[in-house]
């Protein structure tokens, strides 16, 4: 692995290696001394063109726990707000000697551009691009699911290991509910969970399912009650209703927040439809009272807070696997800015 751009590029072996490494990283995070010397002297730049608190803090924590130096670069109040292009920002980061760039961008594909345009030779980690992908979120979701549902059961080839280390998610059913249209989390999860052998059903109002969803490796439903009661998912992942991406106000996609809550919100009644072992997930930040009720969010089945902790372990694993080993192209000449044709962005 050279970059982590999309869960679609991950093979099953890559994904399981990431999850297994994350399990070891998580084990170190219960120690008194959480810091490891592994990435000492490496520089990780958090390049955030879009507001994010939890993902940035999670990446920053992960990098610091591995002893890397962290530089935060946010678009607000920086050269970007003065009109600097992605290319010039990348060349600046290259000149500063960044070993990894964690990028969040409002444009789908910006991390890919950064990784492949030849502007810099750092490893690129996608921390969310537009409505495209958010691979570390999907990995931490898969990690959480595996920990709870494979480790405890000891099934699915887990060989009885308490964490489910080495196992995939074969046979597990995951319902992803809500605003799929704007959700890079849903996209990333559908591909990763499919790669790991789980079955996924997307539950969403017709207006919030993207065009072309029928080509995704999952099934879709418009009816949450029927899915929960009839399909009996092992995990329910609630998505945030992304009002900031709904240009016409919430009314453009569904009649009213109240109607959305009635049809697609997770509450205590719907929780009771689930099998006893099922877990409730949410990538955060939650709109309590809209897609999830306080009762569901705070129930014993909710693993939402644990997802945050697992996020640090998964991001440590990604940084470790991308940065710790040798780089065959290290000695090569740095990319010559003049040689790359002017790629418009």
């Amino acid at each position: 692995m050279r970059h982590l751009l999309s869960t679609q590029d991950l093979s099953k072996d890559d994904a399981i290696l990431l999850l297994d490494t994350a399990a070891q990283m998580a084990a170190t995070q219960s120690r008194e001394i959480k810091k490891l010397p592994t990435l000492r002297g490496r520089t990780v730049v958090n390049l955030f063109f879009e507001d994010s608190t939890r993902t940035r803090i999670s990446f920053e924590t992960a990098a610091k726990r591995l002893s890397a130096d962290v530089i935060n670069f946010s678009a607000k109040g920086s050269s970007v707000s003065k009109g600097e292009s992605l290319k010039d920002t990348a060349l600046t980061l290259h000149a500063m000697g960044a070993d990894a760039v964690v990028v969040r961008h409002w444009a789908s594909g910006a991390p890919h551009q950064l990784a492949h345009a030849g502007w810099l030779d750092a490893a690129v980690l996608n921390a969310g691009d537009g409505t495209h992908q958010h691979p570390t979120q999907a990995l931490l979701d898969a990690f959480t699911i595996r920990r709870h549902l494979v480790g405890l059961r000891g099934g699915a080839g887990g060989a009885g290991h308490p964490d489910g280390t080495g196992a995939d998610l074969a046979g597990l059913r995951v319902a992803i509910v809500g605003d799929v249209l704007h959700s890079r989390v849903a996209r990333s999860n559908v591909h990763l969970l499919h790669t790991l052998g789980a079955e996924v059903t997307l539950v969403s109002p017709p207006t919030l399912l993207p065009v072309g969803v029928e080509t995704w490796p999952c099934r879709t439903s418009y009816d949450l009650d029927a899915t929960l009661a009839g399909w009996q998912p092992d995990a329910v992942m609630m998505l945030r209703v992304q009002r900031e991406r709904m240009s016409g106000g919430a009314g453009a996609f569904f009649p009213s927040p109240l109607e959305y809550t009635r049809r697609y919100g997770l509450d205590g009644r719907r929780l009771a439809l689930l099998p006893g072992h099922a877990i409730v997930m949410h990538p955060g930040p939650m709109n309590r009272g809209l897609e999830i009720s306080a009762e569901a969010a705070d129930s014993a089945r909710s693993v939402i807070v644990e997802q945050v902790a697992n996020g640090v372990a998964v991001r440590m694993a990604a940084l470790y696997l991308l940065l710790a080993g040798e780089r065959d192209d290290r000695a090569d000449a740095p990319p010559a800015p003049a040689a790359t044709e002017g790629t418009a962005l």
């Binding site: 290696l17 297994d20 490494t21 070891q24 990283m25 470790y320 696997l321 710790a324 080993g325 040798e326 780089r327």
Partner: peptide
């Protein structure tokens, strides 16, 4: 850094 990434 002298070897391919090792599994932890």
């Amino acid at each position: 850094r002298r070897h391919p990434t090792r599994a932890v």
